[in-house]
Design a protein around this nucleic acid. Structure first.
Lengths: 182, 182
DNA sequence: TCTGTTTGGTCAGCATTGTTGACGCATCCT
DNA sequence: AGGATGCGTCAACAATGCTGACCAAACAGA
């Protein structure tokens, strides 16, 4: 049933080996490996964010709030512009989640010292406490995966994830890591 | 700043060394490693989906449509119920993207043979062609990351991603892999 | 066969989070 | 002094989740 291979007609760059069977097997393995990557990223990312999502829902917040808490916590004193660049969203989208977080006392603003137009963002104690709670939730989840997989696998995971990032994101990540280890 | 170690109390299996400084350093590494995991997953997943998102936008479709194309392609003849379980959304949410896709000729329905209530979903040629285009986009991206990282890292990546999945998702993944290799 | 359950579709309304476009204000820089 | 920059905000819209309610067709067991 449903064995029509119509999609295969568009198969790209199939190596024209003398042994068609071997070529097909190779391609099949390749394809199934990459299909697996799609599945893993979908399920893995979904379940990675599930814990925080549940906690946040009780506070009438969403994943966007978590991202703000995370990246402001990661780079205290970050400017609004830099946060926008990291998140890759518009200032209107950010404003909608950031303003309530400031009003509710999770985030504070401070005018920049050299450039007074800038609003330097930091977490309040309340914000830091919530962020830590969310962090611990994901930490436990990731630790479980890390322990199950072993240190070598963790290193491989990091290498691949770095590769999945675009050029711009690699720059952001570098800056984050520098900021986190002063 | 933010050096309060409240969360550290719950840190699992922290080696109790006689030198607290060494312990703290170890813990600090642990935390920065896990912070890194959060960053990697955010940036990596975002950029992993960026290519398809751009293609889909031109067809007035979104990521939800891609998921349907992907999982129906992965398990041709899947029931609506099974698709709902895999996606983890409500039938109303699915219906909103699925019905237009049927009307536009990307997906076909067929009544189940044993159980005529079931609507077995498959991709049309048009749907398979689009799915393949999206697949190739992500394939190229993932291949780049895989090549840069090396085969050993890829194995580690897979192990960790599997660990990041919940029990239910692992079951779904198994079923998908079985269906893909008959 | 009658009845209750299951599978799937649909309507209505709502929340979150993203988008454009258009302004306005304070501040910086030339 | 005047243009560029950083930030905030109003309005409208789109995609994708959610709940609740209700209906029809088909199955399954008494």
């Amino acid at each position: 049933m449903l064995t029509k291979q119509s999609g295969m007609a568009a198969m790209p760059a199939a190596p024209q080996t003398a042994q068609p069977a071997a070529g097909r097997d190779l391609l099949f393995l390749r394809e199934s490996e990459l299909r697996l990557a799609q599945d893993l990223l979908f399920f893995g990312y979904r379940d990675f964010t599930a814990g925080p999502d549940k906690l946040l829902a009780e506070l009438n917040m969403g994943r966007a709030h978590h991202r703000v808490l995370h990246f402001v916590g990661r780079r205290p004193g970050i400017t609004v512009g830099d946060l926008l660049t990291i998140l890759g969203i518009t200032k209107q989208s950010l404003g909608r989640v950031l303003q309530p977080m400031i009003e509710d006392g999770y985030v504070t603003q401070a005018a920049g010292r050299q450039d007074k137009r800038q609003r330097l963002l930091s977490l309040t104690e309340k914000g830091a406490a919530l962020e830590r709670q969310l962090y611990e939730c994901q930490r436990d989840w990731v630790m479980r995966a890390y322990r199950e997989a072993g240190p070598q696998a963790v290193e491989g995971f990091r290498r691949v994830m770095r590769g999945l990032m675009g050029e711009q994101a690699r720059g952001e990540l570098e800056r984050l890591e520098r900021a986190a280890q002063p």
